[in-house]
């Protein structure tokens, strides 16, 4: 239970409506039953009114002017550069949200750049692009150009060897070369399929069949098969096609190659 003195301390807050609802309720309940506090609150209110009515006399204008001048003299008059400086510091100062967002963004950017340098694979340089179905229709790298060019040269050599071979002993050497070239054919076919180069794909299909046949010949049937292979080379005109493709790749290699 509060004493009257404690309730009196709430008067000032009550006059200004500064009390919490609970404090106000307790005070009003007490005032209903306490005659002494009722008298005191009236006295206090009269003092409160006197204080509220008090008005300080206005400062003499010349004194105010000299005071303002003195303050400006001590800390500098507010100039446009000051305003700009304060504006900049407010929005880009070290503690401002803008500065923090920029700091975070720059950290993310640095992370992305470092990640790209560490993890990104270096793509071969794209040097050629053409929409002609008989030309390269997809970008091709200089590495692939070299690979195809040397494949075509080796193909020509094998085709000439097969065509010029006359007996079984000659062909033993060519068969080894055919086996090696067959392996390379798969890689070149992949590139040709990626490029969607129909002319190259046709040539490689024939080469694959031919090399497959040449790699798996039995000694008993070698003479007969060798004639068939020679006939295929002639009919498909593979030697001329390999020359044409070589010319095309050489031109590409000269233009874009390493």
């Amino acid at each position: 239970m509060k004493s009257c003195s404690e309730f009196e301390q709430l008067f000032e807050g009550y006059f200004r409506s500064d009390l919490s609802p609970a404090e106000e309720l307790v005070l009003l309940t007490h005032l209903q039953s306490c005659v002494s506090c009722n008298k005191k609150i009236e006295k206090f209110y009269s003092i409160h009114s006197v204080l509220m009515k008090h008005k300080r006399p206005a400062a003499p204008p010349d004194r105010v002017e000299s005071y303002y001048k003195q303050v400006d003299l001590s800390f500098g008059r507010e100039t446009i550069s000051h305003k700009f400086l304060l504006f900049f510091n407010r929005f880009a100062g070290k503690r401002s949200p803008v500065y923090r967002i920029a700091q975070f963004a720059s950290l993310v950017l640095i992370g992305v750049i470092v990640g790209w340098i560490v993890f990104a694979q270096v793509e071969p340089k794209v040097v050629f692009q053409n929409n002609d179905p008989y030309q390269m229709s997809q970008p091709i790298s200089s590495v692939d150009i070299d690979y195809i060019y040397y494949y075509l040269q080796a193909s020509e050599m094998v085709l000439l060897e097969i065509q010029n071979s006359t007996d079984q002993s000659d062909f033993y050497l060519n068969r080894e070369l055919a086996q090696k070239l067959l392996i390379k054919t798969f890689r070149v076919s992949e590139i040709a399929l990626q490029l969607n180069n129909l002319r190259m794909i046709n040539f490689l299909n024939r080469m694959e069949l031919l090399l497959h046949e040449a790699s798996n010949l039995n000694e008993e049937e070698i003479d007969e098969s060798l004639d068939t292979i020679k006939m295929v080379i002639e009919e498909a005109d593979l030697l001329r096609e390999v020359k044409n493709l070589q010319t095309l790749m050489k031109r590409t290699k000269d233009q874009f190659g390493t």
């Binding site: 001590s74 800390f75 507010e78 000051h82 400086l85 304060l86 510091n89 100062g93 503690r95 401002s96």
Partner: peptide, 17 residues
Amino acid sequence: RQLVRLAKNGNKAAFGK
């Protein structure tokens, strides 16, 4: 707060404000 922090760093213009 902002002006006080600037003034603490010796910014006279901020304290002037």
